[in-house]
């Protein structure tokens, strides 16, 4: 018998379980290692059948989940960011943008669209984490602003799915002011008495949490999503201790009073449309 016993899972993974799986055909849950085909995964709305792990998905998937028959009109689909600060770190910002655009097929970290959700029209803004960590720059702010204008004009609710690491450093001051801009526009939506539903998904942190993501008439979240102002690594460094289990997860945030409810992806659309329906006065 050896002197040490390995008690952590994963370390003793048998070599047959470690096989690399070709991308595209199979999905392996990072949480419980359950394996499913990509087709099955799509039917399950990218939620693991084994453990309920909600895989990170983007605007394309969320639009298909929310809009009836995936029918919607995308708003300002061609808007792209400028480079107001001529920002260069290890790479020039325009190069970074171009690379991200090529890799993702997206123009920036958010898409906005107008369409029916169980027959009720709404503007839906959805962030894409794949695009520079879902970071908020001028395009994110402007698309949300225009989405709100569109909702006011069409007298419909505004829904925003957040998924972001926070501000986009390459736009520095401009990025910071998108927090002010989106909050200012939300006051206009509120004045028009139109609902704003904020859906927080994994992860929602930084300047996005400290502005529009926390300002919903209803703040709702998917299970176990990371939601916070400071990232967990920063908090850990600040307090010099390990973080408690479940810290900054949806359930934690709800229990501290900042979310109205948590909803599984399979019930997201029905709960959302029911909430919207009941936010309207009925006689």
């Amino acid at each position: 018998m050896g002197w040490f016993k390995r008690i952590k899972s994963g370390i003793t993974t048998k070599s047959k379980d470690k096989k690399e799986i070709p991308e595209g055909l199979w999905y392996k849950c990072p949480s419980c290692k359950h394996v499913a085909t990509s087709e099955e995964q799509e039917k399950l709305l990218w939620v693991c059948e084994g453990c309920g792990h909600h895989e990170r998905i983007g605007s394309e998937e969320y639009f298909s989940i929310l809009f009836d028959n995936n029918e919607f009109k995308e708003l300002n689909p061609r808007m792209v960011s400028g480079d107001p600060l001529v920002f260069t770190d290890t790479k020039a910002y325009p190069d970074r943008l171009a690379k991200s655009q090529a890799a993702t097929g997206l123009k920036d970290a958010i898409r906005t669209a107008y369409g029916p959700i169980d027959g009720q029209n709404a503007v839906v803004a959805c962030m894409d984490f794949r695009f520079i960590g879902g970071s908020m720059g001028s395009v994110v702010g402007e698309k949300i602003a225009r989405g709100i204008d569109y909702a006011i004009k069409n007298e419909c609710p505004f829904i925003c799915l957040s998924k972001s690491g926070g501000a986009r450093m390459m736009e520095a001051g401009f990025s910071l002011m998108q927090m002010a801009k989106t909050s200012a526009k939300l006051t206009q939506l509120a004045d028009a008495k139109l609902p704003y539903i904020s859906i927080l998904t994994d992860p929602t942190t930084g300047g996005v949490t400290a502005s529009f993501a926390m300002l919903g008439d209803l703040n709702i979240a998917e299970p176990k999503a990371l939601i916070g102002f400071a990232g967990p690594r920063v908090v850990k460094e600040t307090i010099g201790k390990d973080l408690p289990e479940g810290f900054q997860r949806s359930e934690f945030v709800r229990d501290h009073g900042f979310l109205d409810y948590i909803v599984e992806r399979s019930k997201l659309k029905s709960q959302l449309s029911l909430s919207l329906k009941m936010l309207r006065k009925t006689n």
Binding site: S183, L186, T187, S211, G228, V235, T238, H256
Partner: peptide, 23 residues
């Protein structure tokens, strides 16, 4: 402040609320 209790008490919400109210 990026502390544990600041997160528990809703640092993000507190700032967000101020932005909207100050407008």
């Amino acid at each position: 402040f990026p502390g544990l209790e600041a997160e528990e008490r809703g640092q993000g919400e507190a700032i967000a609320k101020n932005l909207m109210e100050m407008v």
